[in-house]
Computed example of a mutant assay.
Amino acid sequence: MILYPDSYLFSEENQLELNGQLIHHQHAWLLQIGDEELDLMFENGWRRAGNVFYRYSYDTHEDIASDGQPMQVLPLRIPVAEFTLTKSQAKIWRKNADFSWNLVSGRPSETHHELFLLHRERFERNAPDSIFDFITTTHESLPTRGLLLDVYDGDKLIASSLIDHTPKSMSSIYAMFHPDYGAYSLGVHTMLLEIYAARQLGVTFYYPGFAHHEPSFYDYKKRFNGLQWLDWRDAMDWLPYERLKGRTEKE
């Protein structure tokens, strides 16, 4: 992997043992990264929060781990050309058809910060402090070329996604929505809009973040057609993801 020597600090791959499970994790601090290098990092299972890029094999956060047991992390991606709507996603798309949206390069406004404060009320524990837990104050240009995907009900901002973008990849960093719109499945809706935008831009891969092998509140990400997952500690091949056991949806 080629990176600029004056703009990064990589850790060695670290290991720790928790409740009998060996956990691998690695992080990097990057001031700036080019499109080709960012594509390589996505392809190898990396995510980012601000200037910190990271990947780890098991989740140990107290609000996520099941009965204190680490949960296997599944980096996810969707080849954009292979995506099709499920029946439930098509229903969400139709239900939200009157909402407008746009995709812009820029940094969050005061309205975005107000939406974030409303969104974080849904967290009972470990609520994030700020949008800048996830992006930098120079989101539009450093360390990547960041985008904002905003959803409006009339003039009211009701959802927003923070996104990384290259000509080849689109990666969702963080999504937030207004709590008054819980009935509209805006978390899924913003993902559908991101995939639609990626297709319009000619992007090859959409990265929705990660889920867990075990059931968790990220399971909605595992219900998308064309989904692939990566075990970056093993063969480094992206593999088709089978639907949640016992759940199927017609395309």
Rank of each mutant, 00 (worst) to 15 (best):
N51A: 00
R77C: 05
H113R: 08
T144R: 06
Y206L: 07
E194I: 15
V73M: 07
T60V: 15
S11C: 05
L22F: 00
A198S: 11
H119Q: 08
F134R: 13
W101Q: 12
G209T: 06
F217Q: 09
H25W: 15
A81L: 05
S169W: 14
L193T: 11
P5M: 02
G246I: 10
M71V: 11
H165W: 08
D63Q: 13
H189I: 08
S105N: 01
V203Y: 03
D237K: 13
L186I: 14
E114M: 03
H178Y: 05
L18Y: 00
G187M: 14
D6A: 11
K168D: 14
E214F: 01
R94S: 14
G202I: 07
P79T: 06
F205D: 12
Y207K: 03
G187V: 13
T248I: 15
L149C: 12
Q228Y: 04
G106A: 00
L16C: 01
P240D: 04
L157Q: 09
R243M: 12
D237P: 01
G202S: 07
F134D: 10
H113W: 01
H24E: 09
F123R: 05
L118D: 11
K87M: 14
K168N: 13
D133S: 10
W93Y: 13
F205I: 02
T84D: 10
K221L: 10
F53N: 04
E17Y: 00
G202M: 09
I92C: 12
Q32F: 01
R77G: 03
T248N: 15
R233P: 01
Y58A: 02
A175L: 15
H61V: 11
M170G: 07
V203N: 04
K222Q: 13
L76V: 06
E251C: 04
K222S: 10
G202K: 09
A97S: 15
D98L: 14
W46A: 05
H112M: 04
V151S: 04
E124T: 14
E13H: 04
L38F: 07
R122T: 04
L40N: 14
G226F: 09
K222R: 15
D237F: 10
L148C: 05
W29K: 00
G20L: 02
